[in-house]
């Protein structure tokens, strides 16, 4: 049985589904990537709308699930950003839900995982980074913002070096956020695809081994998806708290 040589990286190809005319020079067609992002937003909206429709004081199971997710993100914001951080809760919550559902939807067979593309994750990370930098600028003023890079009590000789080091570690944040999420998704999906390619050629009996392995891998991937959404959100809250803090 000859199998065409399918590369395990083919699953990451972005293909247009609905060709739309160019909008201001940018191709606005709906691709599989944008379809799954839209699907994630719709599902999040529908889930929370349906789960909270009764707003019972004693929650049903669905409502309890929705409230637990809310509480989970609320804890992250409260622990890291502090009490005044609650006004930033909406954006952190939206970020968490978007990444979580986009990651989980990508695990469905034949589905596409938009967060496996660096451009998507870097878009999110750059958005958060720019927003937080603007908040820090407004809160501390331009002088205070750059003072933040120079810890107190340093001999004046090494201040320029320390300033450069702090600046670079500050600028590396969006890249680390983006690469972490994209690399985890790509690695997980590619591994599943590669092992899955072993199932059929090994036949009925021996093929059960890679099949069992894929089952376990998918379970691990679900964990990784949730974990990566949590880590992205947690780090965004930590950076936000650093921008909002008045000391140092």
């Amino acid at each position: 049985m000859t199998a065409a040589n399918h590369s395990p990286l083919e699953q990451f190809a972005v293909s247009p589904i609905l060709q739309l005319p160019k909008l201001f020079g940018i191709d606005a067609s709906i691709t599989n990537s944008s379809l799954f992002m839209l699907l994630s937003v719709v599902i999040v909206g529908l889930f929370f709308g349906y789960a909270m429709r009764k707003r019972a004081a004693i929650p049903s199971r669905m409502q309890s699930l929705a409230e637990m997710i809310y509480q989970f993100v609320d804890e992250i914001v409260k622990d890291n950003v502090g009490h005044d951080g609650h006004k930033y809760f909406s954006i952190i919550f939206t970020l968490f839900l978007f990444i979580l559902f986009v990651n989980l939807l990508g695990l469905v067979p034949y589905a596409f995982s938009p967060t496996s593309h660096i451009i998507v994750t870097f878009g999110l990370a750059a958005f958060i980074f720019t927003g937080i930098t603007i908040i820090a600028f407004i809160k501390k003023g331009p002088v205070g913002f750059f003072k933040h890079f120079i810890p107190e009590g340093l001999p004046i000789a090494i201040v320029p070096l320390i300033f450069l080091i702090e600046l670079i570690s500050f600028l590396s944040r969006p890249f680390s956020l983006a690469i972490r999420l994209a690399a985890n998704m790509v690695a997980g999906h590619t591994l599943i695809k590669v092992i899955a390619g072993f199932v059929f050629p090994l036949g009925l009996l021996m093929g059960a081994l890679p099949l069992a392995f894929i089952v376990l891998l998918n379970g691990l991937e679900v964990f990784v998806c949730i974990l990566q959404a949590y880590v992205f959100t947690l780090l965004s809250s930590i950076y936000l708290s650093e921008a909002l803090s008045d000391h140092h």
């Binding site: 670079i168 600028l171 590396s172 890249f175 680390s176 972490r180 880590v231």
Partner: peptide
């Protein structure tokens, strides 16, 4: 498992940003 990876990716991306800059 993600705990150590966070530190590692921070290190790698900071080095990369330094090189690019």
């Amino acid at each position: 498992p993600g705990d150590a990876a966070r530190a590692a990716i921070d290190f790698a991306s900071a080095t990369a940003v330094g090189i690019v800059l």
